[in-house]
Design a protein around this nucleic acid. Sequence first.
DNA 1: TAGATTGTTAATCGATTAACAATC
DNA 2: TAGATTGTTAATCGATTAACAATC
Lengths: 220, 220
Amino acid sequence: MTLGQTRTAAIPTIKRLPLYLRSLRDLQVQGEAFASSAALAKELMLDPIVVRKDLAITGVVGTPRRGFPVDALILAIMEFLGWSNTTDAFLCGVGSLGRALLGYEGFQLYGLRIVAAFDANPDKIGTKEHGVKIFDVRKMPTMIERMHIQLGILTVPADAAQSAANTMIAAGIRGIWNFTPVKLEVPDTVVIQRVDLASSLAVLSHRLAAQAAGCPLSPG
Amino acid sequence: MTLGQTRTAAIPTIKRLPLYLRSLRDLQVQGEAFASSAALAKELMLDPIVVRKDLAITGVVGTPRRGFPVDALILAIMEFLGWSNTTDAFLCGVGSLGRALLGYEGFQLYGLRIVAAFDANPDKIGTKEHGVKIFDVRKMPTMIERMHIQLGILTVPADAAQSAANTMIAAGIRGIWNFTPVKLEVPDTVVIQRVDLASSLAVLSHRLAAQAAGCPLSPG
DNA sequence: TAGATTGTTAATCGATTAACAATC
DNA sequence: TAGATTGTTAATCGATTAACAATC
């Protein structure tokens, strides 16, 4: 079944694509034209078979004895992820985490540009943070509509998360990158991706405990 | 095979434990003594079977018709994750992300306390951020040894990541929570857990693209 | 050509889901 | 007791790993 240009891919594969992208960009800077699955696998501590299977979804074919063309692969991965064309996003909640994300310059590599931030605190409204202007959160809906913003970054306190998400969605946001610990209830036309520090720390804590108990686990 | 107190558990299960913890704490505040797998599942949009299987690794048994005892379950999950006793951690790299983590009060719920921060910038050394003192990074090794710190939080720029990790490990750190995009090379006695924003954004981007192409995906 | 590397098809492994007996 | 909910055993599903033919 053909679904337009978007082929369905496994989540683990999609999570690895940015890792390849980073390695490939390093190789590109070093002037390498080709990268073998073995070389990429070694750098990322993966199996070469995983690399070949993952890269297959980009449609780029490698050549035996040489590997995969670096430039073409970078373009194909970015295209696949929709990172070729910059996506404009709004950030809601300029606390310490919100500020940190506004200051993160790496997002441009992922085709993401935070064009405005919003907060309820009058002291913050009208100021700038890392070059991004902070607006009154009450202006967010009209600005989302007017600028056709599709992606929202949610960095408000937990108790304001669901309400802010509702506002975003009502105004037409299609995806929310959720940095709060709240499980948002949203219509299934809206995509939610949560960054869960607690889950990450849980895995670390458990692996530390397992190590201490003398049972070395494989890297997760 | 008994491996001390630590039972081996699936990574997906471990990642879900903090979610249960959060829901259970809410229920505890509401005065609920018992929680059924169905109730927890509904709140977290999971299958009740998943909940029961996950909770089984804590050793807490539920009672038919009532569910699981909330208080006991909270304690058991925290114990399982090693969050009952506070873990002292050092943070290395007080950029915008480092500052954000220093300001995050939620960590105490996860048994984590950042007791000192380190940076190479003389302007930052000697100051405090969110109540945590910032020291010269050159003092980090001796302080790790003296205070028997086991956990390091890495928020330095990418090009300083491997070197800072080496320093931490040489001084006796056993686990690193890695917020840089660098794949660290470490001895396998050291546990690394990476928080990868790019992977998270990749999944979001891909799901948005899939939605746009008219093929709704199940939540990941 | 010989040999290394790709891409694909099959086998394994592990997590999720289903079915159902046990029990309060 | 009847009925709801647990816990376990089996079935399904999907990702990883292995095997190997194709090809430069």
